[in-house]
Write a protein that binds this DNA or RNA. Structure first.
Lengths: 187, 187
DNA sequence: TTGCAAACTTACTTAGTAGTAAGTATATTT
DNA sequence: AAATATACTTACTACTAAGTAAGTTTGCAA
């Protein structure tokens, strides 16, 4: 794969996660990379191709992470902790997550991009639901709600907290994430 | 106040909550209201004026609601229930809330609009924190976290759930909101 | 009745957007 | 050496956005 292509995807993801899909333009990417507008169209004929590729890249990355945790034999607590670290890292970098960034722009996204975005959300939610359920069975987690509802609650909190962080100054993000984990502690 | 002005604000709010700030244009409003583009500029010289006015209107509406609940003597459980109803209504109407809609577009908003949006988030969070704290004192709510952290968790969940609803089909929104309330039940 | 202000419309500018067609340099294959 | 594919650039088109200046209608007040 071309290095320019990879740089475009990387920068595009950054721009989506900071400015948003509708607020960034091919110009933002081309001027940053020192290439011309049309060069991006060479790799991604339309903006929707770029958007879809970015989501696909993120799905792949997520699946690699969960596969990796599985093959290393992480227990459920450790898995959840690792998952939450994605968000604390995003928070440090003042970025949102892809789902939280593209979600608001669904009405202006192409069908293909929306389909991939839905697929991504479902994959994350399914993984989280399964992890919570098996962790509960093993006695690692304790919660009364249905695992899917609990997964939705946790995922919602994480996604929105990255957005609220820009609005409410005195958020202690570590405490926030800790509260999510501690809420699940069985004992 | 002019009726056209009010209609512009109302429609503008709708557009922000469905399409997003950057995705709607004065054209969307003017064609819907059967007026010309420039007519909107007559009331709101620039888009930032409209955005700020919409946020201010929402702050006012929120404060009227909480004042109303206070003067009617709602207990904390009833207050939280009423607050959550704002989100179930939004979900029914397939809209997001103002904070969740404008938050992602902060980088392209004017300083004034961002200031009002921050003020709005803070007002909501402060109210929620105070309600949770006094409800806990009275034994109406039970939770172990710090009230502000808990408020942030609940608010995040509500905001993001409206966004996730567009991505994950089989959400049972009622169960979701119920889980938030039941989690607080003391006894 | 004239004057004036409110509430617009007409007609425009400016700037930025995605996207395209055609050309060019460079490296690779045949 | 010739042909071809890769990775672009140049130079555009078509469109949409926000915003503006100047004119028009309408109702009310002096």
């Amino acid at each position: 794969m071309s290095i320019t292509r990879e740089k475009i995807i990387e920068l595009g993801e950054d721009l989506i996660r900071t400015k948003g899909y509708n607020a960034f333009s091919y110009q933002d990417i081309s001027s940053e990379l020192g290439i011309k507008n049309a060069a991006i169209h060479y790799y991604f004929p339309s903006k929707e191709n770029l958007g879809t590729s970015i989501v696909k890249t993120n799905i792949q990355r997520f699946e690699e992470m969960t596969d990796n945790m599985y093959s290393r034999g992480f227990d459920e607590w450790h898995q959840l902790e690792t998952f939450i670290k994605i968000y604390t890292k995003s928070h440090r970098e003042q970025k949102r997550c892809i789902v939280g960034s593209l979600g608001p722009d669904i009405p202006s996204l192409s069908n293909n991009t929306v389909a991939e975005l839905k697929r991504m959300s479902q994959i994350i939610l399914d993984w989280l639901t399964a992890t919570l359920a098996s962790g509960k069975e093993k006695g690692i987690f304790a919660f009364k709600e249905d695992p899917q509802i609990k997964a939705l609650l946790i995922l919602s909190s994480l996604i929105a907290s990255l957005q609220l962080a820009r609005l409410i100054d005195k958020i202690e993000y570590k405490s926030f994430c800790n509260a999510i984990l501690e809420d699940l502690r069985s004992e």
